[in-house]
């Protein structure tokens, strides 16, 4: 069972992602901000992380850097309402960038691709 850590400051988003991804057979753990995510990573040891960018406290980009310091390999999908950071994807060393959308097909496809489930 693949484990996914969903990091987002919006509770409704976290809930939606959890239900959708669990339905697809993933084990889902949630974090409401960057600091919580940094605590979760060594404990939960996720196979993939979805990371919001605009968050209070530690934002997604800072969080991404910190996670990479302790866990180099785990795939990270940046998941944001902003489209304009897309081109900086490689600079930030994330693996994918998905603009948030009510239709989760793109996100799910990206996850499956990164976990080589497709």
């Amino acid at each position: 069972m693949m484990k996914i850590l969903v990091v987002d400051d919006e509770e409704s988003i976290r809930l939606l992602y959890k239900e959708e991804l669990e339905e697809d057979g993933f084990v889902v753990e949630l974090a409401k901000d960057g600091l919580e995510a940094l605590k979760q990573v060594p404990l939960f040891r996720p196979d993939l992380i979805t990371l919001d960018i605009k968050m209070p406290g530690l934002n997604g980009i800072e969080t991404l850097k910190r996670i990479r310091e302790m866990e180099r390999r785990v795939p990270i999908v940046m998941c944001s309402a902003y489209g304009e950071y897309k081109q900086d994807l490689t600079t930030w060393a994330s693996d994918a960038y998905v603009v948030k959308c009510a239709d989760l097909t793109e996100l799910k496809n990206t996850i499956r691709r990164l976990l080589r489930l497709l």
Binding site: E10, S12, I13, L16, A81, K100, C101, A102, D103
Partner: peptide
């Protein structure tokens, strides 16, 4: 953001 959850 709210749209994502409403729609989702």
């Amino acid at each position: 953001n709210p749209l994502v959850s409403i729609g989702g």
